[in-house]
């Protein structure tokens, strides 16, 4: 089975935020929550780079290691998902994640902590596939429909790649060879240590 991975080529990202909008619209993500965002470093200066960031579905996911209620699980395709029924909103995963992926909605009552929300690689959650319960809590299960994450599908410069990790790595490698340099795959080695590219 393919190991699903994201790759953001910072040499190509133009900070158009289409990935952010596509994700929010596809999954009907609540107000105040962005599962994906674009981070710009050295903004306005030499070496400016933009990177589209969400959960990278790490091989050795640090969020899984710190969760006190063990609410995370990893699918056969390597996608890191979590159960909102189990999550107690403690925020440990927010701090453990090097990509700042976990998001926490603001809730009305003091003492009630919102459930964590994050990118699902468009793979839904632990509820029944394609059910209303799954869509309501986790968003669309595009992977279950044989489709890839919409953020990458929408990327006009193909900066954001999603899919079989080997195929994604091959595409990036070809780009590096063609353009003669390659330091753009930010976060890849952090998310998938020892897994090439």
């Amino acid at each position: 089975m393919a190991r699903m991975k994201f790759l953001c080529d910072a040499e190509r990202c133009i900070e158009c935020n289409a990935c952010v909008t596509a994700c929010k619209n596809e999954h009907e993500v609540p107000w105040g929550i962005n599962r994906r965002r674009v981070v710009t470093i050295n903004d306005g200066g030499p070496g400016e780079r933009s990177i589209s960031v969400a959960c990278m579905h790490c091989s050795d996911a640090p969020c899984m290691a710190v969760c006190p209620v063990d609410c995370f699980y990893q699918t056969d395709e390597g996608v890191v998902l979590h159960s909102k029924d189990l999550c107690i909103g403690c925020g440990y995963c927010f701090y453990a994640c090097p990509f700042g992926a976990p998001q926490f909605p603001q809730v009305g009552n003091f003492g009630t902590r919102g459930k964590m929300d994050k990118c699902t690689f468009c793979a839904g959650g632990p509820e029944e596939d394609h059910s209303q319960a799954e869509f309501g809590a986790y968003g669309r299960n595009r992977l279950g429909e044989g489709k890839l994450p919409l953020c990458a599908e929408m990327c006009s410069t193909r900066a954001l790649l999603a899919g079989d990790g080997d195929r994604v790595a091959d595409i990036y490698r070809e780009r590096v060879v063609a353009r003669g340099f390659g330091s753009g795959a930010w976060g890849w080695s952090n998310a998938y240590p020892g897994e090439g590219s």
Binding site: L86, C87, I88, G89, N109, G111, T112, K115
Partner: peptide, 16 residues
């Protein structure tokens, strides 16, 4: 917990 005893300190956690 929040439905069963509104105002409890117990975190929102369900077992469906």
């Amino acid at each position: 917990p929040q439905e069963f005893v509104p105002g409890t300190k117990m975190p929102l956690q369900r077992m469906t």
